[in-house]
C-alpha cells in the first residue's frame, strides 16, 4: 500500500518529466529539484498560514503554483534560448540548474531537515485488511486515480491536450499549422513543473524534507520515465506504480539490492527497447 503511494509521488514527478520531454525534447534533470522546491514551499506555507483545518489544503494548492512560476521563469529565461541545440547541451544545462536550485534552497531554508505535519483529520491510521495504515496514504491513494483521470481528460478531451499529443509526434507540422509552438512549450513546461511541485507537496508530510531529496527522486523518476517510455503518459503511470511497488516490496524482501534491481531493469529496458515499454521509437 505504501508502495502504491510512493508510486503516486513518482507518477506526478515522472509524468511531468515525460510530458516535458515529449513536447520539448528536453530531458529535464532539474525535475527532482522542482519536486524538492514543492516540498520546501509546503513547509513554509504550512508554517505561515493560520493554523486552521483548511490551511493544509491551501498550501497544497499554492506550493505547486509556486513551482509552476519557477518553471515558467526557467523556461522563458533559459530553455527558450537552447531548444535548437545539441540535446546533450540541454541536459547539461538542466544539470546546472540542479546545482543552482539546490544551493538556493540551502540558502533559503538552511541545512536542517524539515517536516510537515499531516492535517489533523488524516493524522491517524485506518485498518486495511487488518493492517494499520496511515490515513494520509489513503488520501494519496484516493487522489491518485483522480489526478490520473484529470490528466487523461486534459490530454484526450481538450484542445490543449490534443496539441500536446500532436506536438509529441510532429512539432514542425504543428508550427506549420500556425500553432504558437513557443507558447505551447512554456505552458507544458509550467504544467510539468506544477505536477512535480504537487508531487513534492503531497510527499512532504510523509518524508523528511531534506536537501538530498532532489537527487533521490530524480534518479527514481528517471528510471520510471525511461522504463515507461519518454513522452508516454500511460507508460509513466504504469511504470511509476511498478517502480513504487518494487521499491517498497524490494526494501522489505531484499533491501540491499532493490535499487540496484531498479537500475538493472532500466538498463535492460534501455538496451532492449530504448524508447521504453510504451514509448515510440524515434525516427
Amino acid at each position: 500500500m505504501s508502495g502504491l503511494s510512493v508510486g503516486m509521488f513518482l507518477f506526478l514527478v515522472s509524468v511531468g518529466m515525460s510530458l516535458i520531454f515529449g513536447v520539448t525534447r528536453i530531458v529535464n534533470l532539474a525535475h527532482g529539484s522542482f519536486y524538492m522546491v514543492g516540498a520546501y514551499l509546503m513547509v513554509t506555507l504550512v508554517e505561515v498560514l493560520p493554523d486552521r483545518p483548511w490551511a493544509f489544503w491551501v498550501a497544497l494548492l499554492l506550493a505547486p503554483l509556486g513551482v509552476a512560476m519557477l518553471g515558467g521563469v526557467i523556461e522563458i529565461g533559459l530553455l527558450r534560448l537552447i531548444y535548437r541545440r545539441d540535446p546533450l547541451m540541454q541536459l547539461i544545462l538542466t544539470f546546472g540548474l540542479i546545482l543552482v536550485i539546490g544551493t538556493l534552497v540551502l540558502l533559503a531554508w538552511g541545512p536542517d531537515n524539515k517536516s510537515v505535519p499531516r492535517p489533523a483529520a488524516l493524522a491517524g491510521s485506518v485498518r486495511v485488511f487488518g493492517q494499520p495504515f496511515p490515513s494520509y496514504y489513503v488520501l494519496v491513494l484516493g487522489l491518485a486515480p483522480l489526478v490520473a483521470l484529470a490528466l487523461w481528460l486534459v490530454f484526450y478531451r481538450t484542445r490543449w491536450g490534443m496539441l500536446i499529443r500532436a506536438a509529441t509526434v510532429d512539432r514542425e507540422m504543428l508550427g506549420a499549422l500556425g500553432v504558437n509552438v513557443a507558447a505551447l512549450y512554456t505552458q507544458v513546461f509550467v504544467f510539468g513543473s506544477a505536477l512535480a511541485g504537487l508531487g513534492g507537496a503531497l510527499a512532504a508530510p510523509t518524508v523528511a524534507v531534506a536537501l538530498g531529496m532532489d537527487g533521490d527522486v530524480l534518479t527514481t523518476a528517471f528510471v520510471v520515465v525511461v522504463i515507461g517510455g519518454l513522452g508516454s503518459f500511460a507508460g509513466s503511470f504504469i511504470s511509476a506504480l511498478l517502480v513504487g511497488l518494487l521499491q517498497s516490496f524490494g526494501i522489505l524482501v531484499f533491501p540491499a539490492v532493490s535499487i540496484v534491481l531498479l537500475f538493472a531493469i532500466m538498463a535492460v529496458v534501455l538496451i532492449v527497447r530504448p524508447w521504453g515499454l510504451l514509448g515510440r521509437p524515434e525516427q
Partner: peptide, 15 residues
C-alpha cells in the same frame, strides 16, 4: 556558494 557558482557558469557557458 560553490555549487551555485558552478551551476551558473555551466548555464552561462552553454547559453
Amino acid at each position: 556558494y560553490w555549487p551555485l557558482f558552478l551551476g551558473s557558469i555551466v548555464i552561462v557557458v552553454i547559453v
